[in-house]
């Protein structure tokens, strides 16, 4: 779907509480344009719970349930069960959760909801930190990234949640990035025709959390994909395939940019470049990206 064919309706209203340049509202606008107004959102504790603004007003023009951090997927299970009983199964049940509420705190509820074959769409917008509470490390934070709880850079690599979801044998799982709205729109549209649990993870470059200028949100997401640090893929009917630039990288038609191009624009990696270049840790990041690619290429060839 081309941008000019996107619906004109806005479900994220202006005058909300998001930071300037927020990737969450950017992604949610595209997602809700694809889903349309017959949608019920479930939002656990995350930035988006705050972005809605204060009682008695909300900036979201679709019914939204705010729920405890760990309970988003189980609450959505309840909504899906209620809609089934009411015979209104044409309504989209959607969870919009951050990476803290997906990778760490909400994982058991998500795993349970998928195992019960709940008919819902779970979207994780991954900004790789607990941004709402002031930039703490999460299971999604990449190696060597600064956060307020990893001041010298994180020592561990991020959890690969996509594979955990795929191990549940879901009918549909995909990754996307806010910088590619057409790709995101098509993926969300595709889930609407599939019954059962669906999972989409969106990379959301967060200006205050990643420490870059607020006008660079789109650029930062693009660079993550172009350097191969973020892989766009789709898992459908037991088959994994790459999309967009990631497809060209996998086929060898596009030479990924050096990962330093992406790292040095972010303040959270600035300790890797000054006072002098930390070659050991930069090489560890490069090795990890290469290994991840090898692994995913293997999965795609299965």
């Amino acid at each position: 779907m081309a941008i000019k064919d996107f619906p004109i309706e806005e479900y994220v209203l202006p005058g909300n509480a998001a930071c300037p340049g927020c990737p969450s509202t950017m992604g949610l606008r595209t997602v809700l344009k694809a889903l349309g107004k017959k949608t019920i959102l479930t939002i656990p504790a995350c930035c988006t719970a705050v972005i809605q603004s204060w009682y008695p007003y909300t900036s979201f023009n679709v019914p939204t349930l705010n729920i405890a951090f760990e309970a988003a997927a189980s609450a959505a299970s309840g909504i899906a069960a209620a809609l089934k009983k009411l015979g209104e199964e044409d309504i989209n049940v959607v969870v919009w959760a951050g990476d803290g509420g997906t990778y760490d705190i909400g994982l058991q509820a998500l795993s349970g909801a998928i195992e019960r074959q709940t008919n819902f769409l779970y979207i994780c917008y991954n900004n790789q930190i607990y941004s709402n509470t002031g930039i703490q490390r999460s299971g999604a934070t990449p190696y060597a990234a600064w956060t307020t709880t990893t001041v010298k850079g994180k020592k561990e690599f991020r959890k690969d949640i996509g594979e955990i979801i795929i191990a549940h044998h879901v009918p549909y799982a995909a990754t996307a990035c806010v910088s590619y709205p057409e790709d995101l729109y098509n993926k969300v549209k595709k889930t609407m025709g599939i019954r059962g649990p669906k999972y989409i993870e969106i990379l959301a470059p967060c200006p205050p959390g990643w420490r870059f200028s607020m006008d660079k949100t789109v650029e930062m997401g693009k660079l993550a994909v172009e350097t191969g640090a973020w892989i766009l893929y789709e898992y459908e009917n037991g088959k994994l395939s790459f999309n967009g630039i990631s497809k060209s990288i996998a086929e060898g038609k596009y030479k990924p940019k050096p990962v330093e191009d992406w790292l040095k624009l972010q303040g959270r990696f600035s300790h890797l470049f000054k006072p002098e270049k930390d070659i050991v840790r930069i090489n560890a990041i490069k090795d990890h990206i290469r290994d991840t690619w090898e692994h995913y290429k293997k999965l795609a060839s299965l």
């Binding site: 202006p14 005058g15 204060w54 009682y55 909300t58």
Partner: peptide, 13 residues
């Protein structure tokens, strides 16, 4: 408690 949609819920941003 239920909130209703409003343009400018946080005022004129």
């Amino acid at each position: 408690g239920i909130s209703y949609p409003k343009i400018g819920a946080m005022g004129k941003t």
